[in-house]
Structures are given as C-alpha cells and as structure tokens.
C-alpha cells in the first residue's frame, strides 16, 4: 500500500543477489540437521571404502550398541545445554543410580521394577539438586555440576564399596535391556530401542509442546523469556529433573550393556555426552539445536571410533580424531551462525 517509498542504498545492498557460498550458509543455518547428516554419511562411506566389513549389519548393530549409553546421556545433556547450561555430572548420576538399583535388587532382594522406580526417583532427585542450585541459588551450571560430579561419584563408590553386583543376581527386569531384538539383519537390544524411543519422546516434547518452546526461549535469553511471561526458574528446574530421569533410564541401559552394576564402567561418559551434543550442532550458548542432531552426533562419534578401529588405527589416534572432530564441528557451526547477523 505504502510501498511507494524509495529504497535506501542499504536496502538495495541488502536485496543484492547472494553468492553460492552465502546461499549454502543460509541453507545450513535454516536446516541445522544437514551438516551432521553429511558428516555422518561421509564418514560411513569413507570407512566402508577403507574396510568393507564396516557396513555389515553385524558391525552397524555393534555401533548402535556401543553408542547407546552415551546416546542416552546425551539426550538429557541436550536439554540442559539448550538452556545455556552444561552438566558435568551426567555420568556420575547414571552410575550412582546404577548402584542404587543394583544394591536394592541384588543385595536387598527388592523386586526389579521397584528398584528401577526408586532409581528413577533418585535420578530425579539428583537432577533436582542441580536444578535448585542453578535456578534458585543462581550458581553457574558448570560449577554446580563440577561439585555434584564429585558428590555423586563419591556416593556411588561409598554405596558399592568398590564391589560390582553381577547381573545374575539383579533379576530379569534390570537386565531386560540386554535382551536381543532382531530387526531384519540387524541385531539390536531392548536398551538400544529404549534409547531411540527416548530420542523420539524428547524430540517431540522440545519441538511440539509449549514447554519445549519455553526451554528454547530460556536458553536464548532468560530475561526476555521472563518478560514474555515464562516462569524461567520453573522451566530450568523441570529441565534438570527430567534430565535426571533420563539418566536413570541410561543407568538401566548401562546395567544391561555391562551385565552388572559397577562403578568401573562408562567413566568417560560425562565429557563424551557433551561431545555428542556439540557435534550434533547444539550451541553451548543455549537456545539453538535439536535433540536429533545429538543422535547424529553420538552416531558420528561411534562411527569414528568403530571405523578407525576396523582400519587398525591406534586407540589414542581415535581419541585424537574425536578431538579434531569437536573443533571442526564447532568451527563449522560458528561459520554457519555468522549468517544470523545478516538478513
């Protein structure tokens, strides 16, 4: 209607045709799932060219089982990172819950289902502690979870006294996650399917519910979210508590995978879960990212470790490669994000 006003020089500049690189960058910015997908497919094809055993269903099944634990933790980690937080205690909570479930079922003879329910409650309580310290006491999440990392690790060790509880005394419910499930040529476990289900559930909650929108808004800018009428502290608390429940499910998957309740497994899980989140394209500054990206991130890490092992590369070089991958992923992310400032 009033479009008769002349364009200014800056507006003409803004309306200029884009170069191919700029267009690519905007495409990647709009669809953040593209770059991890490309990396995943690229690495799968490369490792297959190096060793054709890589693409055998048995090997792909093995990769899925190997990434199940980290993948499960990374679900909760993604939720926390989206609020511009970070959780260094994810693995400690998982192992603590593992020992709670194991002690209850294996030593006190509590039925497996009840042991799991108590374990889930302990996971939620652990999340609640982190959440209260972050949302209400207003301590930085890094510091809070650095502290609770020590606390929960110590509690798990105190509870176990350094002993492992073997799977055969845990009962069929807690080890049910190890049950094999044949899907065509693939050989998965109940635990793997459970993890995939968690991804689907959290992806739905984050993208399709108002709670999910609020998580993103809080991570974007907590002050703005508050002014928009979002109860910021309640959202933060709900994120840490539901992440705690996710870690309890991870503990269940861990018991099945290891075949025992032990404090000696998954010791690198804290940082590996962050690796999966970052490679999956979720911003550590909060408010940007997708949980399905994290699934791709976890798979990329699993594919790299497995593929390099099949190529007979030393395990230290695998760690080296994952390190390079993290930096490459974040650099790519920064480059893509720079488009956000333009138009």
């Amino acid at each position: 209607m009033t479009e008769t006003i002349e364009q200014t020089a800056a507006e003409r500049y803004r309306a200029r045709p884009l170069t191919r690189v700029q267009r690519l960058r905007r495409l990647l910015h709009r669809h953040p799932g593209i770059s991890p997908t490309v990396v995943l497919l690229g690495s799968v094809i490369s490792f297959w060219l190096i060793n054709d055993r890589f693409l055998l269903p048995a090997n792909l099944s093995l990769i899925l089982q190997q990434v199940a634990i980290i993948g499960a933790l990374a679900v909760g980690q993604t939720m926390i990172v989206l609020t511009a937080g970070i959780d260094l205690s994810v693995g400690a909570i998982m192992i603590f819950v593992t020992m709670v479930m194991g002690t209850l079922a294996g030593e006190l003879g509590v039925p497996g289902v009840l042991a799991f329910v108590v374990g889930a409650a302990v996971g939620a309580a652990a999340g609640l502690v982190n959440g209260i310290l972050v949302a209400y006491v207003k301590l930085p999440p890094f510091i809070v979870t650095l502290g609770t990392l020590g606390v929960f690790t110590a509690l798990a060790l105190l509870m176990s006294g350094g002993r492992s509880i073997r799977g055969d005394v845990l009962g069929s419910f807690l080890t049910w996650t190890a049950t094999p499930v044949g899907l065509g040529p693939f050989n998965l476990t109940v635990g793997v399917l459970l993890v995939l289900l968690m991804y689907a559930g959290v992806a739905f909650a984050l993208s399709q519910t108002s709670w999910g929108r609020h998580v993103y808004a809080v991570g974007n800018d907590p002050a703005a979210a508050r002014l928009a009428g979002i109860r910021v502290r309640a959202v933060l608390l709900s994120v840490y508590v539901s992440a705690g429940v996710v870690f309890a499910f991870a503990a269940w998957v861990l018991i099945g995978r290891v075949g025992a309740a032990t404090t000696n497994s998954a010791v690198d899980a804290n940082l590996d879960s962050i690796t999966a989140v970052v490679i999956g394209g979720t911003s550590l500054f909060g408010g940007r990212g997708r949980v399905l990206g994290t699934l791709l991130g976890a798979l990329i890490v699993g594919v790299f470790r497995n593929g390099l092992a099949l190529a007979r590369v030393d395990v230290l070089w695998q760690t080296f490669a994952i390190g390079v991958l993290i930096i490459a992923a974040v650099s790519l992310d920064q480059w893509i994000r720079r488009t956000g400032a333009q138009r």
Partner: peptide, 14 residues
Amino acid sequence: ALAPALDIASNIFL
C-alpha cells in the same frame, strides 16, 4: 524480549 532463535509465530505466542 524476543527469542532470536525462534520464528515470528513462535515469538508472538511465546
């Protein structure tokens, strides 16, 4: 008080 990473509709309904 807008959330930059959300779209216009999501912001209006935030």
